[in-house]
Design a binder for these strands. Structure first.
Length: 243
DNA sequence: AAATAACGCAACCGCGGTCTC
DNA sequence: AGAGACCGCGGTTGCGTTATT
């Protein structure tokens, strides 16, 4: 099936954003909230592709962005999460409040890769350089990691991960210790909404949600009907954010 | 001081997943 | 059921800045 372009390319600006464009985008989103990126540029009076607007907002203009240098703690957390999740930058970014997937991806490629190489570790496998040439070990490692990524990022539940580890445990592989270390990592998301500071948009959401909390389970890969129990019970979900 | 190489980051592109009709 | 529309992600590119010669 052919897909039509997301916007009229002939009449859109490309390249770096001007201050005026930024201001227009910020003003529009502050007034109307995020969403419907396709129609946003026209409504905001921007000669930009909707995707471009989304990217600019998410990676640069969002008010809750931290910016500035990464701390040593953030470095180590990124390394840990990458060893578990691989190049799933959006999932990793979900664990670092105020950081974007693009920022982390860039930071990984420019700093952390080098850091790991200096430690004698392969940035992809997180194993000592040279050891990765052992194909059996590598295959088994990437296999279990792939399984975990699938479990976290698809619609599976955390209990499935525990099951898989128990299974591995019973088979007595050396991966078990490593897997258990991963499980020590708290992957529960805690996020703040970008519009907490803007009562108008928060209020606009209330009728749709039915209550003044927003369930973020979906961002962990859970569908509301699965792991999340907050739907029938107001504010029962641990991942609900009070507005 | 000028040339050029290396680096860092913002932005773009293409694809896959999900939703809607 | 499936076609089309939309969104979000990961990989890549391009350009401005900084370091080096």
């Amino acid at each position: 099936m052919g897909r039509s372009p997301c916007c009229e390319k002939a009449h859109t600006n490309k390249g770096a954003w001007t201050k005026e464009e930024d201001q227009r985008l910020i003003s529009y989103i502050k007034a109307h909230g995020e969403g419907c990126w396709r129609s946003l540029p026209k409504a905001a009076g921007l000669l930009r592709c909707g995707k471009s607007c989304r990217l600019r907002w998410i990676n640069y203009l969002r008010p809750d962005l931290k910016r500035g240098n990464f701390t040593e703690e953030e470095d180590e957390l990124i390394i840990k999460l990458h060893s578990l999740l691989g190049n799933k930058w959006s999932l990793i970014a979900g664990r670092l409040p105020g950081r974007t997937d693009n920022e982390i991806k860039n930071y990984w490629n420019t700093h952390i890769k080098r850091k790991l190489l200096n430690r004698g570790l392969d940035p992809q496998t997180h194993r000592p350089i040279g050891e990765s040439s052992n194909s059996n070990l590598t295959n088994s490692s990437s296999h279990t990691r792939t399984q975990e990524i699938a479990l976290f990022s698809s619609e599976s539940k955390r209990s499935n991960v525990l099951d898989s580890v128990e299974e591995a445990n019973s088979s007595g592989t050396s991966e078990v210790v490593e897997q258990q270390q991963y499980l020590d990592l708290n992957l529960d998301l805690s996020m703040s909404l970008p519009f907490q500071s803007h009562p108008a948009s928060a209020k606009a959401m209330e009728p749709k949600m039915g209550f003044s909390g927003v369930c973020l389970c979906y961002h962990l890969g859970f569908k509301r009907s699965e792991a999340c129990r907050c739907q029938p019970i107001q504010n029962a979900c641990a991942l609900t954010v009070d507005l």
